[in-house]
Design a protein around this nucleic acid. Structure first.
Length: 590
RNA sequence: GCCUCGGUAGCUCAGUUGGAUAGAGCAACGGUUUUCUAAACCGUGGGUCAGGGGUUCGAAUCCCUUCCGGGGUACCA
């Protein structure tokens, strides 16, 4: 409805003899309790008109109705000028813009963006926090594709380090040669189980040492198990055959397990990076920083950067013994990824506990003069909390990803069968449907919340299937599909002059018209949440329409029926497309 | 202590260039099915937008301040 702005500018020039900037004219949707579709907020204009808000509004309203064909009526409420727009305007917009096959699709913008997400540790299975990360990363990728980007999805796997050695060591000591094959256990769960066993035995040793008079810190350092694990890490780094071979074997088990989880979640990656290959990177960057005078060396030989002028602290970038720390590695990895893909932007999907780390990382790269540093973005998201607090792997208070997925599917199965909806479905289709619904509920639940907010998950209350949920939107889609098939829908463009259109239908056109802008907003914010809420509003509006309008299938043939069917079809298409961006399937029947 | 992100209905959440009487869902209560899928629709009740101050025609939104909560402030990753 951009024409309103231009016309209002003309009106003001005519009435008050003054040019007015576009930004001063504030147009919003008219609230439901008032008549009209578009509202101009006139307060800012009174500075020019030098008249009361009411009078200014009335004058502009009269001008617009007299001079603009599509504006048919106006009313003034305090400083708000409500305009009624002709139905034909909406129909024209619907036919020409919204029904166009490429509606909501952005052309390629020629830019490449990397989205790094998931980044699991290979010593334990994925939990609900990882699920949020994976769904966010996948969805943001799809969102950016829809907005015209060329997207590269990468997964930087943390496959080395002391934590992996803990699982390996525990398995060596107490595993009796168990394998996923011999136990039937998913590989990541098996390895995770030994990680927990290590921790349990380690704690026992600590207690023993404390009982013998050592302090907590001493006991933690001196426990034989941790020493053995450290030895193992050292051997790994020296390339000890036995250790490396065990490491490879156990990692393979974990990957096999992860692949199943990824497949169930519907996420994928274009490239995997492994920290076992990247952990030595970054030393060149440190040399570069020293040469440029960005870093400095302390007496002990350790290398630092001083960020106090930027409101941060001094930060170590290389130990005195020349070994790397986390940020050294990340500096090197960032350069490598840029060399590999030469992308314009790069998004790290990582939890908000690492806000400080990424702030520092990006700042250092900028100070090193990397031109691409300004394209880096940390998509920081809040932790998923349980009612009694944070999830902790070692304390067993985690919601396991595989179990959660399974229970969502089970719930979907129970609810669907209770409603008797799938009595005539072939068995295969049933299982496919339950999976789509169960995961739809889970994904929507996690994605509808603004990423940076932390999110509460209560395992005791199952995720809803009614109201503002994935299944509600899926149901709306299925309902439309059923209607279309019953009416033998064929596409045809209607005229723009016929009667019988209701207010809710105009609302739907307005809501559909917003779709491209919603993609843009969500893509720019790297946040699928607003899109999720948009789709919910659209579905809700459709259901209202569905109840208010008499059965379309039985309506006599004509423009009104055709228009309504077109409206249904487009709504289904947009729900389908939008849900795909969220990684959620829209079943044809449910 | 310092940095940072949050605090909106009983619960889970929407609400951005500052706009009208702050919205949904769940839960509670009541209603709608001889009509295209009732996982739906309609209605009722429920608010000190954490507290206080400021900016102005107008503040959940911007500024200051206090309180509460998460996270960070590691030569862990």
């Amino acid at each position: 409805m951009n024409f309103i702005i231009t016309e209002t500018q003309k009106a003001i020039l005519e009435l008050y003899k003054e040019e007015i900037a576009e930004s001063v004219i504030n147009i919003q949707e008219t609230r439901k309790e008032f008549e009209g579709q578009a509202t101009i907020v006139v307060f800012p204009i009174t500075k020019i008109s030098k008249k009361s808000p009411e009078q200014t509004a009335a004058e502009i309203g009269e001008y617009l109705v007299a001079h603009v064909e599509d504006i048919t009526k106006f009313n003034v409420v305090k400083g708000f000028l409500n305009l009624s727009i002709a139905e034909s305007y909406f129909l024209k917009q619907f036919n020409e813009e919204i029904l166009a096959p490429d509606f909501g699709r952005y052309p390629a913008n020629g830019k490449k963006v990397m989205v790094e997400y998931s980044s699991p540790n290979t010593n334990k299975p994925l939990h609900l926090g990882h699920v949020r990360n994976n769904l966010l990363g996948y969805s943001v990728s799809e969102l950016l594709k829809a907005y015209g980007y060329n997207v590269v999805k990468v997964n930087l796997v943390n496959d080395r380090g002391i934590h992996i050695c803990k699982s390996m060591l525990a398995w060596q000591k107490w595993g009796n040669g168990e394998t996923p094959e011999s136990t039937g256990e998913k590989g990541d769960h098996l390895v995770g189980r030994y990680y927990v066993i290590f921790d349990r035995e380690y704690k026992k040793e600590i207690d023993t040492l404390k009982a013998a008079g050592q302090t907590e810190d001493e006991a933690k350092k001196n426990a034989p198990l941790i020493k053995e694990a450290q030895q193992m890490l050292l051997k790994w780094e020296q390339g000890d055959e036995e250790v490396v071979s065990l490491w490879k074997t156990m990692n393979e088990w974990v990957y096999a397990g992860f692949n199943i989880t990824y497949k169930n979640l519907g996420v994928d990656f274009d490239k995997f990076y492994y920290e076992s290959n990247t952990y030595l990177l970054g030393k060149g960057t440190v040399d570069e920083g020293l040469a440029k005078g960005v870093f400095f060396k302390k007496e002990d030989g350790s290398v630092w950067i001083d960020l106090t002028e930027d409101g941060l602290d001094q930060k170590l970038v290389l130990r005195a013994d020349g070994t790397s720390v986390y940020i050294t590695q990340d500096l090197g990895t960032a350069e490598m990824k840029h060399d590999d893909f030469n992308m314009d932007e790069s998004i790290y999907v990582v939890g908000n506990e690492q806000d400080y780390h990424f702030k520092v990382l990006f700042l250092i790269l900028e100070k090193l003069g990397k031109s691409w540093a300004k394209g880096l973005y940390h998509l920081s998201y809040g932790m998923v909390d349980l009612p009694n607090g944070k999830m902790k792997s070692r304390e067993g208070t985690v919601v396991d990803a595989d179990e959660l997925i399974e229970s969502m599917i089970t719930t979907a199965r129970e609810k669907t069968e209770e409603l008797g909806k799938t009595n005539d479905f072939p068995q295969e289709d049933k299982e496919e449907l339950y999976k789509n619904i169960g995961l739809g509920a889970l994904k929507y639940f996690l994605l509808k919340v603004e990423p940076k907010k932390r999110l509460l998950f209560n395992p005791a209350e199952s995720i809803d299937f009614q109201g503002n949920t994935g299944p509600f939107i899926q149901y709306t889609h299925a309902r439309i599909k059923s209607l279309l098939s019953k009416s033998n829908y064929q596409f045809a463009v209607t005229s723009e002059q016929f009667s019988g259109i209701s207010a809710v239908e105009l609302e739907m056109i307005l809501q559909l018209a917003k779709y491209p802008a919603e993609i843009e907003i969500a893509a720019k914010a790297f946040s699928p949440a607003s899109l999720a809420n948009y789709l919910y509003e659209l579905a809700k509006l459709f259901n209202k329409f569905y109840h208010e309008v008499p059965p379309i299938v039985k309506t006599e043939e004509g423009d009104l029926k055709q228009f309504r069917l077109n409206l249904c079809k487009k709504t289904a298409d947009i729900i389908h497309a939008g849900m795909l961006i969220l990684g959620i399937a829209s079943p044809e029947r449910m």
